Amino acid sequence: RKWEEIAERLREEFNINPEEAREAVEKAGGNEEEARRIVKKRL
């Protein structure tokens, strides 16, 4: 699934746990840019 690939990239890029990465992607509706913004806000 594409969402899992996005979550994996976010996890590696921001050094967050898989659960946090998945939550961000879900919140963003699968949009990678939006997920990235969500993760950055949390850091």
Rank of each mutant, 00 (worst) to 15 (best):
E13N: 10
E20N: 07
A21M: 03
I16C: 13
A35R: 00
E33F: 10
G30H: 02
E5P: 13
E12I: 10
E19A: 14
L10N: 00
L10W: 01
V39A: 12
E26M: 06
E8W: 07
A24D: 06
W3F: 15
E20Y: 04
N15P: 10
R1C: 06
R36G: 09
R1K: 15
K2V: 10
W3H: 07
R42M: 11
K41T: 10
G29A: 11
N15E: 13
L10P: 00
K2H: 00
K27Y: 05
A21H: 01
A28S: 10
A28D: 00
E32Q: 03
A7R: 05
E8D: 08
F14W: 12
R1S: 10
G29D: 04
E34C: 05
N17L: 14
A35E: 00
E34W: 05
I38D: 15
K41R: 13
R9W: 04
W3D: 04
N17G: 12
K40I: 13
G30S: 04
E8I: 08
W3R: 14
K41L: 08
K2R: 12
E20D: 10
I16P: 01
K2A: 12
R37P: 01
I38E: 14
R11N: 04
A35D: 00
K40W: 03
A35M: 01
L10K: 00
E33S: 07
R9L: 13
V25N: 01
E34N: 05
E23D: 15
N17Y: 03
R1Y: 13
I38R: 11
V39Q: 07
E8R: 12
K2F: 11
V39T: 08
N15D: 07
E12Q: 12
K41G: 11
E5G: 07
R42T: 11
R42G: 13
F14Y: 09
G30E: 05
A7Q: 07
R22P: 00
V39L: 07
G29K: 09
G29W: 03
N17M: 07
R22S: 02
E19W: 05
I16H: 00
P18R: 13
L10V: 08
R22V: 08
E13C: 11
K40E: 13
N31D: 12
P18E: 14
R11G: 14
K27W: 03
R1T: 15
A7H: 01
N17P: 15
I38T: 14
P18H: 07
R37Q: 05
R11H: 15
F14Q: 05
E12Y: 01
A21L: 06
E32V: 10
K2C: 04
G29I: 13
V25Q: 00
R37C: 14
A24Q: 05
N17W: 01
R42S: 08
N17T: 05
K2E: 10
R36M: 12
I16K: 00
R22A: 13
E32P: 11
R37N: 12
R1F: 14
L10F: 01
E34S: 08
R42P: 15
A24G: 04
K27D: 05
E12D: 01
V25L: 08
E33P: 11
E4C: 02
I38Y: 04
R22H: 15
N15Q: 15
E23V: 06
K41A: 13
R11L: 10
A24M: 11
E32G: 07
G30W: 03
V25P: 00
E33H: 02
N31I: 04
E4A: 06
R9Y: 03
K41P: 12
V25S: 06
E12P: 03
